[in-house]
Simulated scan of single mutants.
Amino acid sequence: MQIYRYESALEEKMILVHVAMPSVREIREQRKIMVKKDGRMRPNWVDLQMRWDTGMITANYIKYLEDVDQEMEDSVERACDQVGDRFAHEYRILAESDITMIQIENARDVIECAKDFDLEAEERVKSALRRLPERFRPDEVASATGLGQRAVRAGTALVGKGFTSIPKNVRLDGGTLLFNLVAFDGPR
């Protein structure tokens, strides 16, 4: 299991949300790059460097909105101008407004279920998804597999692997209609 270092509660929440995203392949935290400012080389700390399944790499500065000012924006622009694609394809500031409590809670559930490492249940759920409709409830996959709660947890873990997905801004619970990405090419 990967252990991540973070310096604020906001960074922790951003890591949670992104770890549960199947499109994020790697997260590297607290990365130092050197930039020139006032004629001297100075460290510029990137909170999260992420590699996506598309191959794109983003440099993310995780800041509370109250801490985002012109100096912060200039620092990010300086890093982008001086280091550019050698470190990341895109540089951005992420704040608390970029994630919701629903995303955070769903990500916690996905990660917690993935910790089961119940590969047998996941395979049975993927097999059952081939026969289920485009949208399904967790209890339907439980019935289709005969695994009950194990199937519900495996189906939740499969969100993080890109086989199922939760509709945007919907809290995951027993009645949530999930997207079936095994039998249908749904939103990823």
Rank of each mutant, 00 (worst) to 15 (best):
M1Y: 09
Q2K: 14
Y4I: 01
R5N: 13
Y6V: 03
Y6A: 12
E7H: 11
S8F: 05
L10H: 08
E12M: 12
M14H: 14
I15L: 08
I15T: 05
V17M: 07
H18M: 07
V19C: 13
V19R: 10
V19H: 06
A20P: 01
M21S: 12
S23G: 11
R25L: 11
E26A: 12
E26G: 07
I27E: 07
R28M: 13
R28A: 13
Q30C: 04
M34F: 11
K37A: 15
D38R: 15
G39S: 05
G39L: 06
M41S: 13
M41K: 13
R42A: 14
R42Y: 10
P43N: 10
W45V: 15
W45F: 15
V46K: 00
D47E: 07
D47S: 08
L48P: 01
M50A: 09
R51E: 12
W52E: 09
T54K: 01
T54Q: 02
G55T: 02
M56W: 08
T58R: 07
A59L: 00
A59P: 03
Y61G: 10
Y61W: 14
D67H: 15
V68S: 07
D69F: 10
Q70A: 15
E73M: 12
E73W: 04
S75H: 11
V76K: 05
V76C: 08
R78A: 14
R78P: 03
A79K: 02
A79L: 03
C80Q: 14
D81N: 13
D81Y: 13
V83Y: 06
G84P: 02
R86F: 11
A88H: 02
H89G: 09
I93C: 09
E96A: 09
S97F: 11
I99Q: 06
M101Y: 13
M101K: 15
I102Y: 11
N106G: 05
A107K: 05
A107P: 03
R108S: 09
D109R: 15
E112H: 14
C113P: 02
A114S: 12
A114N: 02
F117K: 14
F117V: 14
F117A: 13
E122I: 02
E122D: 01
E122R: 06
K126V: 08
K126S: 07
S127P: 02
A128R: 00
L129A: 03
L129K: 01
R130I: 08
R131V: 00
L132Y: 01
L132K: 01
L132F: 03
P133N: 07
P133L: 02
R135S: 08
R137T: 05
P138R: 07
D139H: 15
V141T: 07
V141I: 10
V141W: 01
A142T: 01
G146S: 04
L147I: 00
G148N: 03
Q149Y: 12
R150Q: 05
R153Q: 09
R153T: 05
A154G: 01
A157S: 09
L158N: 06
L158T: 04
G160A: 03
G160S: 06
P167C: 05
N169G: 09
V170Y: 08
L172N: 10
D173W: 08
G175S: 14
G175N: 15
T176G: 10
T176L: 04
L177W: 13
L177H: 12
F179T: 04
N180P: 04
N180G: 05
V182Y: 00
A183E: 06
A183G: 13
F184E: 02
D185R: 11
G186T: 00
G186K: 00
P187S: 07
R188N: 09
